[in-house]
Every structure is written in C-alpha cells, then in structure tokens.
Design a protein around this nucleic acid. Structure first.
Lengths: 358, 358
DNA sequence: TTGTAAGCGTTATCAC
DNA sequence: GTGATAACGCTTACAA
C-alpha cells in the first residue's frame, strides 16, 4: 500500500514518448532470435532473407500479434504517402464518382485516400492544404464542385509550390492544361465536344433559338459555353446574348432564371444547361407554366446523373466518365502513368425524352 | 572532375533514411538559437515559453519555410490519429451525406479523414481494416450501403478487437446497439419510427393492402420492416406475406419485383419501399403499365434523396438526418461526446404527391 | 544472408 | 523558462 505505482508503464527507459502499440518489430526480432534489420527485411520483402528465418520471423509475428506501424514506416520515407481529394462538396453525384475512381486507384496501390471538404470556404481550403502538407501527402486532387467560383490561378500556384516543397503534386480534375503553370497537372474529359455535340443534336432537330443556361466564371462553365458556341457556329448560327443566362449550379437559381427566360418576349425553343442540376430547375419552371417538354421546350443537361433518368421525360444529357477520370487523376498523381500523355477522356451524348418525342 | 559526387546529399550522417523534407525542427531551433525542445514547445503551445523566444522561433520558422511533420508527431503519440469511413459505395446519396458530416466533424477537430470503399467485397474489406490498423487510425466508422448484406456479427467483433489492439474504436452507423457486443459503438436514427409513421399516413388515407418492398437480411431492411409491421399493427391490420417482397437496394430489381406485384391477382394499393432507390423501380413499373401514381398506387420511400423531388409525382419519403448522423458518429468515435447517451436521431415523413392527390 | 548502428522528426522527462 | 537526452518504430548503408 505504501509503494506508489508509476502512472505509466514504460518499456525501455524513463524518457520520451509512450509506446503506441503493444508489440513492435524489435519484439518480433527478439522473439525470433534475429536482428531488427532482418525482421524488417522480411516484411518489406525487398531484400533477400533465408526461407528458414523468414518463417521464424513470420511465426513470431503471428504469435505476438504484431501489426506494422505505417506511421513509422512513412516517417523514414519508405512510407505510406497518402492521396487526398479536396473538393467543395460531395453533393453533385459526379463528385462522388470522381472520388470513387480516385479511391479505388489509390487503394489498389496501397495509398491511403483522404477526403477534405472546403464547403466553398477559402479559409478552410487554405487550412486544408496546410494540414495536408503537414501530413506529407503524396498528392492532392482538386476539383471545383457546387458551382463555387474556382480557385484563382495564383492560389493554385501557391498551393502547388507549397506541395512541391514536400515532394507532392497538385492535380486539377476537370481542368484544361495551364500553359503558364505546367507544374500543375490536369486531367479532363471532353466537355467542349460533349456540349458541342448536344447543340448539333438540337440544331439537327431544327432548333434555331437555343439558350445556354449556366454562364459563370468557373472553368467548367467556360468549357461548356465554348462547346455551345462551337455548336452554334457549326450550324452557322449567331449567339443571341439574351439567350446566354448567367447561373450557378443551383436548381433554385436555375428555376428562377429559366422562368424569366421562358416567359420572355421571344423565348428559346431549346435550353442547354451546363449541369443536370440546373436542368432540374428548368423542368420546374416548365411545369409552373405548363410548358410541355420537349414539345414546347427541349432541354439538355450535363453529367448524366441519376436525376437525368428520374425526371419526366428523361433528360438528354452529356455523360462523362467521372469514375475513370478520378482513376486517371490518381494515376497521374501517383505517377503510375506517363504524365505527358494527358488526352481528354471522351464524353457521350445520351439522348432521352427531353429532346425527342417519338 | 575526379571527385565522384555522393549520389544523395545527407545532412547529418551517412547511414539511415533520407530526410523527408528540407527543413526540420532542429534547423529552426538552430536558426533561432534555442534547443529543439524549446522550438517544439512553441509549436505545440502547451508549455510555457517566453514571448521573446516564441517570436524568435516563429520568425525563424517563417524565414526557413518550416512545415511541421505530422507523421513524426503522430509516431511519438502526440499525433494525428485519423478517422476513417468504410463503406461499400458512395453512390446512394445518403452515404455521401454521412461522409460529409463525419468529415466536417473530423476536420473541425484536426483529424484527417480517410475514405475506404469495399465495393461489397469481403476480402477487400479485410484488407482495408488491416491497412487502417497499420496506419493507427483513431477510429473507423462503418455503414452498409448498396444493399450489400451487412457484415456478420463475428466479423464485426473481429474488426473491433483488432482495432482495440491499437487503441481504436469501431462505430457502426445506422445500426442498433449490439447487446452482446457493447464494445462496438453505434449511432442510429429512428428508422423504425419513420416507416411506422409512413404506414400510419397510408392507413389514415384508407389504404388496407399495403406492400413492403425491400425485405432482406440487412439490419437496415430489418429496422424498416419492423416499422412497417408496427404501423400495420397500429391500424389493427395483419400482414399479408404475399405483400412482403424481398428486394435489395437496386432500382432494376425493384422494377422487376414490383411489376410482378402490380400485376398480381390482388395487387396492393400502396407500396412502402425501404429506400428511395427501390421506389424508383416502382415508378418505372407503374409507368410500364400506365398505372397512375398516386391514384392507383401510392408509393413511399426512405432517405429523401434528390430522386424524391425529381420523380413525378414527388415521392413521399422518410427524411433522415444523415449529415448529423455522420457528425454524431465522428463525435462518438473521437470521444468528443459522452458515449453513454446514444439517442436515435429523429426522422421525418415528407409528404409529396406519391401519396396525396389534392 | 545477417548484424550493427545511424538516422528519420518529433515529444516528454528530468534537471537546472 | 530552457536545455540535454532518450525515446517512438522503423529502414538502410555498410561491414561481416
């Protein structure tokens, strides 16, 4: 009763941090009667170890219930180097697809996959990058979701160089190559071509007044607007500025904006929406005024989200391979693939009832 | 020209691993003319440091471009201890919501957030757990999505004890407390009550033949079936086994199964679907046969996903606070909250056109 | 093939 | 308030 117990049990000395687990490599080595170095070689698998000692070590590990400490591994540089995805929100389903593809590729190559959400908050975004760098991530994938205005080029350059200082790279997903900042890697799909094809589809059906809903300052919107412009040019048609409507990726805003458009003095006969989510707003506006889709107004979206099939009639939309894009982004980030070949992944126009009434 | 350069530049010796960054705490300390210990104290903020040295150290850090190495921090135990979410897929939107809530709470408390997808593959699941344990995660959240048959209780117990060996906990999301395995933490929302209320809503509208679509072996389906049973009992109605349809969380399967149901000799007047996703299938079947919702068939879902508003008519469904549930799961996992108080979060019936035709 | 020893970047204990 | 110092668990260059 008079002997005060030491508050914590230490194994090998009285100084320094507490052990983080029960049994470590040294214990396994001791139990197997070999040096820690040999035990390490067994687990890393790179060096040559005699079969007999290999088995001895493995048996000891089994018996002692040894689990490798990846943190220590990572610290000495052999380590685990994780892959992170930074995005504003998981909500548009394509972001989840992108994350899925990236996660799968990361997991396949034994890289932990981190997810960080900015919720469109610039300060949070900075904190996230700072934290990821402190964690010594291998790479960061970034994409701008939810219609938030994308990060400025200066900010991206700052992030990229901060990452570079710990040997990590930045990969922007859904972006076109930055000629002025080649250190920032990009992966993309053919957004321009997809929308262009959608417009061609509409013009081939005889539409002349085709609106574009979703002009804004994001690069995503920019690419899709370019596709719209090219599609119009293909048909030899001029763009009526009154039919180019500024809108973020928000169904409520799209509802309001498209209502004004549908009730204007010379409404369009077709609307190209820069996302499926904005297309939802157009459906609502059409329903408000009992305007029949596609007879009185044709609608095209982008993303081929679950929404596209849930709507009545089904939404004609551009399908993009987001899972593959995420996988490719991860491959590029982890340098599993030659960086120089960065072709855009193909997109595909999915035709449904919102543009055809057979 | 005759001096062979050493292949890598080492800083403090010739043996051992390569440095993982340019500048470390020792460099900062040296630059500031203090000991590493003091510099450490400045950054951890716990111990007392004189203001003048504090500023000196901070200035040096700034000047040298020092970034803390969380890996080293984590290894000595002061560390970063991440939170992981293990799930089969991100696809049902509620999983994304859960992830969002968990991520936000983790981030708020400076815990990295890891995402790992099993795709319903048991072997992958095991690998994921093994890997997470090697990474010394603080906690693992798990949920069964995509209608995959949930993990067996033995497996959960195995995972929980493996996690416990490195001081981590397992939190099952959307599960009821396991009386036989109190070491497994759970968070849940009132799924039973939500469905029960939905059935009450239907019976109050005069429905007598109410089907349940989605009976299966997952605990999720089990809870919702219980709600259905209680709702039926509330109205003094017996359950017709012919109206309890086995189905996983798959719209295609639901389409087929509900088509059979709708074309049976005595079809129901209402169908309670255990997810919104299965409800989509019912809408498709109804459309196939030109059966009008809600006049000829009333439909109820669960999740209040975007689908619920995209469908025509809008889907009456049970809304569950998945973001909050994820946040709570993270709080419980990271012990930010008293574990003992685990009340179920409330759910809410959202009434839309699929059950009312005013 | 195996052992020795140094080192990764940090924190905690003890003494001053 | 500050500095030595040992320790966390692991890997690797070198020697044997």
């Amino acid at each position: 009763m008079s002997q005060p117990e030491p508050p914590v049990i230490r194994r090998r000395g009285s100084r320094g941090p507490l052990p983080t687990s029960d049994v470590n490599l040294r214990d396994v080595a001791a139990h197997a009667g070999v040096s820690p170095a040999t035990a390490s070689r067994v687990f890393s698998g790179n060096a040559s170890v005699s079969e007999s000692t290999r088995l001895k070590v493995l048996a000891s590990a089994q018996e002692l219930g040894y689990v490798m400490n990846n943190l220590a591994q990572a610290m000495v540089g052999a380590g685990h180097r994780s892959l992170a995805l930074v995005t504003s929100s998981l909500e548009p389903s394509w972001v989840s697809d992108l994350a899925t593809g990236a996660q799968d590729t990361a997991a396949k190559n034994a890289h932990p996959f981190l997810l960080a959400l900015t919720h469109g908050d610039a300060k949070r975004e900075q904190q996230i990058f700072a934290s990821l760098i402190e964690q010594r991530v291998a790479a960061v994938l970034m994409t701008d979701s939810a219609g938030a205005e994308g990060p400025s080029e200066e900010k991206l350059a700052t992030y990229a160089s901060a990452l570079a200082s710990v040997g990590a790279v930045l990969v922007m997903c859904g972006y076109q190559f930055f000629p002025t900042m080649p250190q920032i890697l990009t992966v993309n799909c053919d957004q321009v071509g997809g929308v262009r094809q959608a417009v061609q589809h509409l013009t081939s059906k005889g539409h002349r007044r085709i609106a574009f809903l979703g002009w804004n300052r994001t690069t995503t919107a920019g690419q899709r607007f370019l596709g719209y412009s090219l599609g119009m040019r293909d048909a030899g048609m001029a763009i009526d500025p009154a039919l180019v409507i500024e809108c973020t990726d928000d169904a409520v805003e799209a509802h309001l904006k498209s209502a004004l458009l549908l009730k204007s003095t010379s409404p369009p006969t077709a609307i190209v929406c820069f996302t499926d989510n904005t297309a939802r707003g157009v459906y609502r506006a059409a329903r408000d005024f009992a305007i029949i889709v596609p007879l009185q107004i044709a609608i095209v979206g982008f993303d081929d989200s679950p929404t596209a099939t849930d709507l009545t009639p089904g939404l004609t939309t551009v399908s993009a391979p987001y899972v593959d894009l995420g996988a490719r982004a991860a491959s590029v980030a982890l340098r599993l693939v030659d960086e120089n070949q960065n072709p855009e992944l193909p997109t595909e126009l999915i035709i449904r009832g919102s543009t055809t009434s057979e």
